[in-house]
Amino acid sequence: MTDRWETVRPHVAAWRQRLPMHTLARPAARVSTMLAATWRRLPLREDPLPSRPLVVVAACLVAGCAWGSWLPGTAGPPPGVSAHWRAGMHWLAALGLMIAWHRAASRGQAILAVASLCLAVSSAAAAWSVARSSLFPADELAWHLSTRPVPVAIRGTVVESPSGLPPASPDPRLAAAIGPSSQASLAVSALRDGARWRAASGVATVIVGVAPTDLPPLIVGTEVEVTGRALRRPPALNPGEFDAARRARLDRSLSIVRVRSAADIVPLAPPPDWSVAAAVDRLRAGG
């Protein structure tokens, strides 16, 4: 800091000597002196700013997820060979790039090592994106459904307690107007097939035609049996239309179960006493 002030001081002194010492020049000289003193006291950094590697990692993750989501492919009934191939290729690319990073780093090739590491992170993120949006278990509930509603009876665990849905139209004279309704999320564990229950999986969105206050206590972790009409979320049919099926794949909730009344939801077992999610849900419900 002293060297910097010694460099600036001669210029300030010469400028003050050339100024006519009249009423307007004296305040200007004082201001210049104050500015020079302030410059001297500023806590300026002499060393460069530290690097921020997490920003680069975050950018690589975002780019990889975007690349994995942009690639063509849809989630269909198992085995979903296309999605398996895409996810596998991304994982293999990430593994190969990690090997390239190790070799480049051991040889002191910094630029090549950084580039390989960034591409490896992006490839791993793309593989995760493909797996999340396109790979589902073989017993996923949606694979037993179509885009037309069919009667079902399922069992599962509440993963999101019921919340109220806004009415379709506030005008009761319109045909689209409906009464109060609720929405909850259920982790499916079984599907009734005739007189027996068989294993199933997936997350289903349960829509009930009553307000949340009219439902039995459905705390997160409660095991329930639901009877209603279920369907798989339909894809977009027109260009530019919102693709509900794609959004459902990203949320990993492919099925919708519509229930007419609260009597069609039967609690089977309360959540465990040690469940943290249930405790948080009780606190939230209590306000």
Rank of each mutant, 00 (worst) to 15 (best):
A37I: 10
R40S: 02
R40P: 00
R40K: 03
L42N: 03
P43S: 11
L44M: 14
D47T: 07
D47M: 07
L49Y: 03
P53I: 09
L54R: 06
V55L: 15
V56W: 06
V56R: 06
V57G: 00
A59C: 12
A59E: 14
C60S: 12
L61T: 05
L61A: 12
A63I: 09
C65G: 11
A66E: 08
A66G: 15
W67F: 02
W67A: 15
W70E: 05
L71P: 04
P72C: 03
P72K: 10
P77D: 11
P77T: 10
P77E: 13
V81G: 03
S82Q: 06
S82C: 01
S82L: 05
A83C: 04
W85D: 04
W85Q: 04
R86V: 14
A87T: 09
A87V: 06
G88C: 13
W91K: 06
A93R: 02
A94W: 12
A94Y: 10
A94L: 04
G96N: 01
L97R: 12
L97G: 07
M98R: 15
W101C: 12
W101L: 13
R103Y: 07
A104S: 13
S106E: 10
R107I: 06
R107F: 12
Q109C: 03
A110H: 06
A110Q: 03
I111R: 15
S116N: 03
S116R: 05
L117G: 14
A120F: 04
A120Y: 04
V121N: 04
S122Q: 12
A125F: 05
A125K: 05
A127L: 04
A127D: 09
A127P: 13
W128N: 10
W128T: 13
W128L: 15
S129F: 04
A131P: 02
R132K: 03
S134Y: 00
A138S: 12
E140W: 11
L141M: 07
L141Q: 06
A142E: 01
A142N: 02
W143N: 03
L145I: 13
T147N: 12
R148K: 10
P149W: 05
V150Q: 08
V150M: 05
